[in-house]
Design a protein around this nucleic acid. Structure first.
Lengths: 135, 135
DNA sequence: GGAAAATGGTACAAAATTAAATCAGTTCAA
DNA sequence: TTGAACTGATTTAATTTTGTACCATTTTCC
């Protein structure tokens, strides 16, 4: 029984995620946003401020600025200055944005689901639980 | 008991990996290579040809070309034309490259290990097994 | 209260990444 | 054979991403 090597688990996981993403991103692009934009968009409801998005997605602030600008231009997002703190921009997903998010996440679910499908339902639940503990 | 949403698991996992990477990448940079270069370098022994690396790492070929060139310039890699197929470039990790890979992966192990540490040894083994099944 | 430090966001320039086209070598089919 | 199709790798040009510097607002603390 070999000792557990974290880096090995890490790269196994990393390669898996990247390959899933590489597989769906052409389909996601057809929805009118790219993959990273989908990630941003999908977290806006939970984290409605750019600074928060930057932290949860581990992205630099200027990167978020760019994505938000594009998402707004595409009509998936609305931006308004927060009355409580005039520095902050509160983000709102539009109906079109909600629709495209749902479609994009469905594509992702389909692709990643194909891998998850190799696990039993119990194992899937276990995986989720393990990941939650680590998050 | 909520139904399993693959996209939810996916993004949990994605955010986890990205945050781990964001945490170590300054330390890895001090070794003289950046994070992506470490990923490439760490797979060279298993996949000694650029085209193979592109597939396993889900990176475009030109991206691999750039990294390989930098790794070679840094003295971490040697390149020679394959005698069997003159189109292919067989890659060889140098002793310096091996050393820096070990250090880089140790840093990654330390950082990801901190998260893995929230799991029992049995759970860690289970996680690895689940990921292997999906890979 | 008011200056200094901190925070949210952006602009601009620089660096990283990649798509598209290309070249060289190999394979395949007639 | 031989030439059409394919594969490995690179170049070039364009796009994406990010570091740095910055402005505006808020918070801290004397």
């Amino acid at each position: 029984m070999s000792k557990i090597d974290p880096a090995k688990i890490w790269s196994l996981n990393y390669n898996l995620l990247m390959s899933v993403i590489a597989g769906v991103s052409p389909d996601i692009s057809e929805l009118g946003l790219d993959t990273k934009e989908l990630f941003v968009l999908s977290q806006v409801e939970e984290h409605p401020y750019p600074a928060e998005l930057a932290v949860t997605l581990s992205m630099p602030k200027p990167t978020i600025t760019v994505y938000v600008k594009r998402l707004e231009a595409a009509g998936f997002l609305r931006r308004e200055i927060d009355a409580e703190d005039l520095r902050r921009h509160r983000l709102q997903v539009t109906p079109a944005g909600r629709k495209v998010t749902a479609r994009g996440l469905a594509l992702l679910s389909e692709a990643f689901g194909a891998r998850l499908g190799r696990l039993s339902a119990a194992e899937q639940a276990e995986l989720r639980s393990l990941l939650e503990k680590m998050s």
